[in-house]
């Protein structure tokens, strides 16, 4: 495995931000009430992560160590505000369903964490790759979590909802009662718990096979 592909892939599995590093729990638990919301949140975070990683990597040698954290936060906040404006202008319904959690991307540990731990020490290309890997890992996890919760809790699977376009599969008939609690806050914790347990089980099995 070449090194750059390693940077890209570790965010997806080995250092998955949600399931392994347990970062960004707040949006993970709060907005994954539908597959589409999870996807939207993931992509928004990916965009911010990519922007901030690239920018931080570019200015890494110009920023004095003592003020680096405030500078990173300003950079991140700028990208978050940009994403917020763009979403509000172009995908208004997603913006209103994600609501407060878009501004809160600023304090998402994944982003400051990658800026501090990786982008501030690495070249532009590698930082961008890292952002894409971590962002994709976050996005896919949120999408999977949102899918499970929406299918169990609402009986539907929403893939796209843009103005008049709505791609939504109904997996449980309308007359069967869905497990409502799955789209309520407790359901987020239960689903995430099973996700992490499953991930650990797979990792443990792999380890025992290798040994």
């Amino acid at each position: 495995m070449s090194k750059s592909s390693n940077i890209l892939s570790r965010g997806l599995w080995k250092e998955n931000p949600v399931l392994v590093l347990l970062l960004g729990m707040c949006p993970t638990l709060a907005v994954t009430t539908s597959a589409y919301n999870g996807l939207g949140m993931g992509v928004a975070t990916l965009a911010v992560l990519l922007g901030s990683n690239i920018f931080v990597s570019l200015i890494r040698s110009l920023i004095p160590k003592k003020v680096r954290i405030p500078c990173y936060i300003v950079v991140i906040a700028t990208f978050v505000t940009l994403v917020d404006m763009i979403l509000e202008a172009f995908v208004n319904n997603l913006h209103s369903s994600l609501g407060l959690f878009i501004p809160l991307i600023v304090v998402n540990c994944i982003i400051l964490g990658r800026a501090e731990a990786f982008a501030s020490k690495n070249t532009l290309g590698r930082s961008a790759l890292d952002a894409v890997g971590m962002g994709l890992g976050f996005t896919l996890t949120l999408f999977a979590l949102g899918s499970v919760r929406e299918i169990l809790g609402n009986g539907t699977w929403t893939l796209l909802q843009y103005q008049e376009i709505l791609i939504q599969l109904r997996l449980l008939s309308k007359s069967t009662d869905p497990i409502l609690v799955m789209i309520l806050p407790p359901g987020a914790f239960i689903a995430l718990g099973f996700f992490i347990a499953g991930m650990n089980a797979i990792v443990a099995r792999k380890k025992s096979k290798a040994a």
Partner: peptide
């Protein structure tokens, strides 16, 4: 209690 929250109607 889980069921009560999960299926409030039924």
């Amino acid at each position: 209690v889980f069921l009560l929250i999960a299926f409030p109607g039924p």
